[in-house]
Amino acid sequence: MRLWLIFPVLMAVVLGARAPNAQQVDFVIDATLPVRDTELPYTLDLNLSAAAPTRVGVGALLDLREVQKTVPERLAENAIVDNCGLQVRLDEFGFEAQDDTIDLDGQVTITIFECSRTSERDFQRGEQKNAVQANMSTEATVELRDNCAYFELIDLVLTAPEAQREKLLEDDTLASVKKLMLAAVDLVLNETPLCPVLPAELASLDPVYDTGGPREIGEGGLGVFLDGSVDVSPSTILDILTVLQQQELIPGPP
């Protein structure tokens, strides 16, 4: 039997995976996404399929529905922007997948303060001048960089109540808030990429992902897919055989 047929079978034995046929194997891995000082659980559904005599196709689906439920609760009442003259607090929000995009909606409270310079570099916040609650909506997508999936906002729309919109537009407040929010959110998203980590039994595979993007799971459930391949070298096969021998699933060396 050729290596491209042997390999998926070996993976199925090592990981107790579902093997629908000799050229394809699926299995599920529990993983976590580190976000600042916490870790959020998600599920990685990995598919290996025979692609060529020396290549195995890899399809990874990251199920982020638990993250989708947890993040809005943890970020509620947090300030997205908080500087001397402006605070933007995230009151509530939620997001869901729609086909190949991610829709996000919520409400923010925009508070404007007096701000005075106290030295060449320092400023001091003064009294509150104005506060308004605005609706926020945006779309996000996924960009694949360095084998990791990064979330990126496509645009951000802020709308204020009619009674206060004119004053805010005169002060160019909404445009300024939008710019600062995009910068702040982009910074956080760039610090929290999705980089699937395989368990020790698969570490030597080192898959290379070529494409990726959002994917809806069920109705509105957030998922991210990654497609790529693995170079099935002799050393990789030997690593898998070693694992099989260590687990006494096949006889060891004579």
Rank of each mutant, 00 (worst) to 15 (best):
Asp100Lys: 01
Gln246Thr: 00
Pro53Tyr: 02
Arg125Pro: 01
Leu64Ser: 00
Glu114Trp: 06
Ala175Tyr: 04
Pro253Trp: 07
Leu249Met: 12
Ser235Ala: 09
Glu139Arg: 07
Gly252Phe: 00
Ile237Trp: 02
Ile102Pro: 00
Glu201Ser: 10
Gln247Pro: 02
Leu169Ser: 11
Ala31Phe: 04
Leu144Glu: 02
Gln98His: 06
Ser49Val: 14
Leu48Gly: 07
Arg2His: 08
Glu66Gln: 10
Pro34Trp: 05
Lys178Leu: 01
Leu241Pro: 08
Trp4Phe: 15
Asp155Val: 02
Pro53His: 11
Val208Arg: 01
Ser176Glu: 13
Leu205Trp: 08
Leu174Asn: 05
Val188Met: 13
Leu10Glu: 10
Leu249Trp: 06
Gln87Ser: 14
Thr32Ala: 14
Phe151Met: 11
Ser176Lys: 04
Ala76Asp: 01
Ser229His: 00
Thr38Cys: 04
Gly218Ile: 00
Arg89Pro: 02
Asp37Val: 01
Leu61Glu: 15
Thr70Lys: 02
Gln124Gly: 08
Ser137Asp: 12
Thr242Asn: 08
Gln87Leu: 09
Leu241Tyr: 13
Ile250Arg: 08
Asp210Pro: 00
Asp63Trp: 05
Ser235Trp: 09
Pro253Phe: 14
Lys167Pro: 03
Ile80Glu: 03
Val188Ala: 13
Lys178Ile: 03
Arg74Pro: 00
Leu189Met: 06
Asp105Ala: 11
Leu15Asn: 06
Ser229Glu: 07
Pro72Glu: 01
Leu48Gln: 03
Val71Cys: 08
Asn21Gln: 04
Val81Ile: 15
Gly228Thr: 01
Gln23Ser: 14
Gln247Cys: 07
Leu33Gly: 05
Leu158Ile: 00
Asp239His: 09
Thr138Glu: 00
Gln128Arg: 15
Cys148Trp: 02
Ser233Phe: 00
Gly16Cys: 06
Glu120Cys: 12
Gly57His: 05
Leu48Ile: 12
Leu44Thr: 13
Lys167Trp: 14
Ile80His: 01
Leu249Gly: 09
Arg18Gln: 14
Thr111Tyr: 10
Ala19Ile: 14
Cys195Ile: 10
Thr43Asp: 11
Asp227Thr: 12
Ala131Asn: 13
Thr242Tyr: 04
Ser235Glu: 04
Val13Trp: 06
Gln247Gly: 09
Val9Cys: 13
Ser235Lys: 14
Asp45Lys: 15
Asn78Ser: 14
Leu222Phe: 05
Arg36Leu: 06
Pro251Met: 03
Lys129Asn: 13
Val185Gln: 12
Asp91Val: 03
Gly126Arg: 03
Trp4Lys: 11
Glu191Val: 09
Thr192Ala: 11
Pro251Ile: 03
Pro207His: 07
